[in-house]
Design a protein around this nucleic acid. Structure first.
Lengths: 233, 233
DNA sequence: TGTACATCAGTGAACGCGCGTTCACTGATGTAC
DNA sequence: TGTACATCAGTGAACGCGCGTTCACTGATGTAC
């Protein structure tokens, strides 16, 4: 409520239609991929004529931009919600996987092969900064907890998580940490965050692209194993 | 030579044109992505009329199929060539990265977001089996060498490479190893191979998709760091 | 070596399709007096 | 409460475009006698 109470019926209707356009757009992306997104096809599915959509979006590119923005926002929200319930890396990894499987094309629109002629809007970098901040928090917590006695329980090696054994890459990151923004994480945490990102994406993207189908093993188990390689638990 | 000497001039010409069509197709994929591949556009660039291409390919789908097949074949060749010069995992990782950067769209056509309506031909599974076999060989060699004294030199932890410390995932792989074919690799090696594949792909695909641009660090350093996490060196 | 025939690469016209986008318009919904 | 006007969602026709694909045809190249 609040601001939405002030909206006139017309404004509410407008927002509603705009939302339905996006929903149909996602449906279409889910079946034919992002590059096949067509305003006319969306309009037809809504029982409207093509030009009607121009009341809501300046054109195809603006619609895609909006979808990309929403996708980023959605992931940032999911991350922040999970972080509020505890900043453990394991929980975050599970939240990511759930978010990805919940709508594979949404994940691929953000992290998959880029749409040919399309350029991401600027403010997505701000949102992806939020996502990175949550990840860095979790990595910081993970690393400090990994130095506690509990970590000695198993012979399982714990890197790049665990104790910050200095790596050659750390020196590089110490001098190229602009992407971490104001976050005070040390290089070993930055390194862990990048490993989390790339390893989980590696499993997820291959799974979503169908590269594991027919191989027999359970992708969820592989994902769990890779998560373990990061948390050392 | 050999078989090519028997070819009539017409056959040689035919093969030559067919090759040029593919080259133009790759050029087009490189600029606009695989889903924008157009027979007419290729023909125009070759100074031919559209229908002429139907003398060489039954249609758009067959052309894409051929490109996918060639891409797989090319990677398998690169892997086998590298393996012939030594089966070290590190060299294989470098070969993969070189192959990917050499033509990003070729990598993405194989391992990126799948082309919407397209289904890969059957024989690609055979070729990807060859690729996996080379990887499994390298992982086998890596793991046995990691058990040698040399591995003790540094405090760097070596998992999932290094000594086959049994993981929960190993039990799963022991029962789902059909994808490894006849290869006699133990579960710990299978696990290492999957980690190699997914970790390197994680870095490469995000790099090729441009997700590291503007972050400041050097993707090659990250790639090297992830390779180290696998070889434990 | 020369002629008759077969092969086959490539053309141009045509089909039907869907696309993004513009434009002038109708008609319903809201607002001001 | 009723009338005059402004706002704005949606339509239908139209523009130009490129796509994949088919078809009947031309003309050059190769083959058989």
């Amino acid at each position: 409520m609040g601001a939405s109470d002030v909206r006139t019926p017309r404004e509410r209707y407008r927002a509603q239609v705009q939302e339905e356009i996006k929903e149909r757009a996602w449906e279409q992306i889910a079946t034919a991929g992002a590059s096949a997104l067509s305003l006319n096809a969306i309009a037809k599915r809504m029982g409207m004529s093509g030009p009607a959509l121009y009341r809501y979006f300046a054109g195809r590119d603006e619609l895609i931009t909006e979808l990309v923005r929403d996708a980023y926002r959605s992931l940032a929200d999911a991350f922040q919600a999970r972080a509020a319930a505890g900043t453990d890396l394991d929980g975050l990894a599970q939240a990511l996987r759930r978010w990805a499987l919940d709508d594979p094309q949404r994940y691929l629109l953000v992290y998959g092969t880029p749409v040919p002629g399309y350029r991401a809007p600027e403010d997505t970098t701000r949102i992806s900064g939020e996502i990175m901040a949550v990840l860095l928090d979790a990595c910081t917590a993970e690393q400090s907890s990994a130095q506690q006695p509990r970590a000695e329980q198993s012979s399982a090696p714990r890197s790049p998580a665990g104790s910050p054994s200095p790596s050659p890459f750390d020196a590089h990151l110490a001098e190229h940490r602009a992407w971490a923004g104001e976050h005070p994480a040390p290089p070993s945490v930055l390194r862990l965050a990048l490993a989390v990102w790339t390893r989980l994406h590696g499993v997820l993207s291959l799974e979503l692209a169908g590269h594991f189908t027919g191989m027999g093993f359970d992708p969820a188990e592989l994902y769990a194993a890779e998560t373990r390689s990061l948390t050392g638990r």
